[in-house]
């Protein structure tokens, strides 16, 4: 079910963070929710902070294993900058401790790589439905 969108409601702004160009392009190409607009992307945590400050996204997809600054550290920074931001971790790291760590730092969801197009869109839809001030 789509997120209700009134005429005056702006689309949710999405930033994509992954050190793989391939994955960044895939997420951008595959996401098919009309409620979302991709406003920026970054290849590591430090770049993500810069793009975040510039584009003010509502939603973020976040890889964890990245150079410069990893995803867990980046999540903590982003949540400090904007506590209501919703972050979907998209990572190959499949142990429970990492997922718990990410959630405790402020992530809202976790999607394991590899993922199908359908799994990605379902995870993004779930993220978009979370009330903004939850």
């Amino acid at each position: 079910m789509p997120v209700p969108a009134g005429p005056a409601m702006r689309r949710l702004r999405l930033m994509i963070v992954d050190d793989s160009n391939l994955i960044r392009r895939r997420i951008e190409r595959t996401q098919s929710l009309p409620e979302l607009a991709v406003v920026g992307s970054a290849g590591n945590g430090e770049e993500a902070l810069e793009v975040f400050r510039r584009t003010d996204p509502d939603l973020v997809t976040m890889d964890l294993t990245m150079p410069e600054m990893d995803g867990i550290e980046c999540i903590a920074h982003l949540v400090r900058l904007k506590p209501e931001v919703r972050i979907l971790v998209i990572s190959a790291l499949a142990d429970k401790a990492t997922a718990i760590d990410a959630i405790e730092k402020g992530a809202s969801g976790f999607l394991h790589k590899p993922f199908t197009d359908r799994q990605l869109n379902e995870a993004l839809l779930e993220l978009a439905r979370i009330p903004q001030h939850a």
Partner: peptide, 27 residues
């Protein structure tokens, strides 16, 4: 290059399901 690295990363990262968090992988 991106694709071959992503396959290696995904398979290695998934191994943490069994090996746990102390199986630390590089980029």
């Amino acid at each position: 290059c991106d694709a071959v690295g992503e396959v290696a990363n995904t398979i290695s990262g998934n191994a943490r399901r069994d090996y746990g968090k102390d199986f630390v992988i590089s980029v």
